[in-house]
Design a protein around this nucleic acid. Structure first.
Lengths: 336, 336
DNA sequence: GTTAGCACTCAACCGCATCGAGTGCTAACA
DNA sequence: TGTTAGCACTCGATGCGGTTGAGTGCTAAC
């Protein structure tokens, strides 16, 4: 399609524009990248590239800017080699703490590491886990006539709540109750438990408190088991980019990041190891100057997504490296 | 000091400027607030108010803007009546969920409610709790050769971590270990526990894992017990104000909100039920266009702070109402 | 196929005039 | 003595024309 030189010039333009955010002129290219031809030749090539749809001119006396089609070409080449081709990003790996024991902590740590390293906006999607089952229930005595109810699921999720009881129960009694609760409910899905307990709505007394607590936690988990959750971090980093020097645009961007709903709708179906959406491909007017890269992590039945959102003019190669590195760490974490 | 009419004019100017963010001219006042004198008279009064330091002129042909001294006068009057004088802000109360069982959740919910209602930036400070003691330790069996270690302190804080053990321990055995752990460590401060366990650094095996887990949790709590923690929410709301239409300024603001350190240094010592800091009184150049209102909550030995940060031109009365309302809810929550 | 030369375009910048909101001052009035 | 109408003045905001300079497309020569 494109001959060698055109391709090289296009790559130079992408590279330069990603670095500087300034439209690239023919002289800039001859000066920065010694390519052995004069600006006039470059101009001819650039004119061809524009005719082919790879370049755009903001106005006639400005340099050229890569089009979405150009980024697409560049990115397709980049990821064609497969995620294995990316050498790990040590610095990103170092940001990510490996001694995390719970899903939520891991998701947040991954989001943090991603935006620490990329200086863009990161997102982590933990997929819904339908059919989540209860593994253990345990009551723990607390100071001040209270007890902590802890619920553990088969997938390793933990939720707790404080119950206020009238009399101070001794640990052995709490343990006995815990055992019978676990026996009664272990292996059931959180939805089943919710329905089962709806029947005991008016026992009264301490028993009622305990069952209400179980139901509350089951309800929380039921929501989690049916809804994908997204963590977003570093949304304010968008202010660092000249593309969002306009406060109105920045606000619109932040609003989208906050709602999360539309973000979820976009990424939910991603199945490829690496997916890149560029500019209008995102199909959200607020994000038309943005690109979104997502990678999958997880093993077996459990798959989540990591993503980075930044300006269309982003360092794709480096960002994919960072993402795949953190993805691998997450996969390791979840497979142990 | 100020005669009745001067005072009224000053209040009008503050009110109008808070609403519109536009310097207030003499004709605006006669038009909007029927005060029964001509613009010329207002001008004379405004000239006096400027000489007294209550008004400022951005430039000679603009209207007047209230000075920090004017806001100070206004605010001092406002809070002189004491926090009881503020009728509760029902709408704010409705944003705040009362069925929260843990400190962290409550703090976050309060921060959310505050910025939901004020559309500004909210902060919640939970003070350090030196001498925090361990109340209960409990191991709970988890699927996949793991155990959850839960630590409860005398102040009701809960921390947990997942331990990976080689063999799958049965619940009774875990309970027995929990009881002896609790017996050994209950009543000790988290610092003591940290030091005690440093001695057992190389037992090896499952025992080691458990002790390491306890030490990790104790270390987390030790940090929390010695450091005040601040929750910040809605920092991006600053973009809604024309004062921060400049992206550079907005970024500087967000950076301060992120670091938290300097925020903490400012509010840490607040003891009054309501404290208001206006503009330069905050002594941070990044916040020179901001005001900060804090209120105390809590009972007995436990006192935290709620705060709202917004432009100097903020609706002080309404904001104090919202803050005192949420403060009261928090106090109720903590006294139960 | 490449390149030097040249006319052309257009955003950015600057200076200048205009406009209008708002002021301070003065003199007249109640 | 306090209030007000009138008026000159100030100065930011807006708009306009000219200049500059980066960058282009085209043409002709190599």
């Amino acid at each position: 399609m494109l001959d060698e030189r055109k391709r090289q010039i296009l790559d130079f333009i992408i590279q330069d524009y990603v670095d500087t955010a300034v439209p690239v002129g023919s002289r800039t290219i001859t000066r920065k990248y010694n390519i052995g031809v004069s600006p006039a030749t470059i101009r001819n090539e650039m004119s061809d590239l524009e005719a082919l749809g790879y370049l755009e001119q903001p106005h006639v006396s400005a340099g050229r800017v890569p089009s979405v089609k150009a980024y697409r070409l560049y990115v397709d080449d980049l990821i064609a080699a497969g995620p294995e081709a990316f050498e790990p990003d040590e610095a990103a790996g170092a940001c990510f703490s490996r001694c995390l024991t719970q899903q939520e902590d891991a998701a947040q740590s991954a989001a943090q590491a991603l935006c620490e390293r990329t200086r863009m906006t990161s997102l982590v999607m933990m997929p819904s886990q339908p059919g989540m089952r209860i593994s253990t229930l345990q009551l723990i005595s607390m100071p001040g006539n209270a007890a902590l109810l802890v619920l553990v699921t088969d997938s390793g999720l933990v939720r707790d709540t404080v119950l206020h009881v009238r009399e101070n129960l001794d640990p052995d009694a709490l343990y006995a109750i815990s055992r019978s609760l676990t026996e009664a409910l272990s292996g059931r899905t959180v939805l089943e438990v919710q329905h089962m307990l709806a029947a005991y709505a008016s026992l009264g007394g301490a028993e009622q408190r305990v069952l209400d607590g179980v139901r509350t936690l089951a309800a929380q988990l039921a929501r989690q088991s049916s809804e994908d959750t997204v963590y977003v971090d570093g949304a304010h980093n968008i202010l660092n980019f000249p593309e969002y020097a306009d406060v109105q645009k920045a606000r619109a961007f932040l609003a989208v990041m906050e709602k999360r709903r539309s973000l979820l709708d976009i990424i939910r179906e991603d199945r490829a190891p690496v997916t890149v959406r560029i500019g209008e491909e995102l199909a959200l007017p607020e994000l038309c100057d943005c690109s979104l890269i997502t990678t999958r992590f997880g093993v077996g039945g459990y798959h989540g997504l990591l993503g980075v959102i930044g300006p269309v003019r982003m360092p794709y190669r480096q960002t994919v490296r960072t993402l795949t590195t953190i993805s691998r760490s997450m996969t390791e974490l979840f497979s142990s």
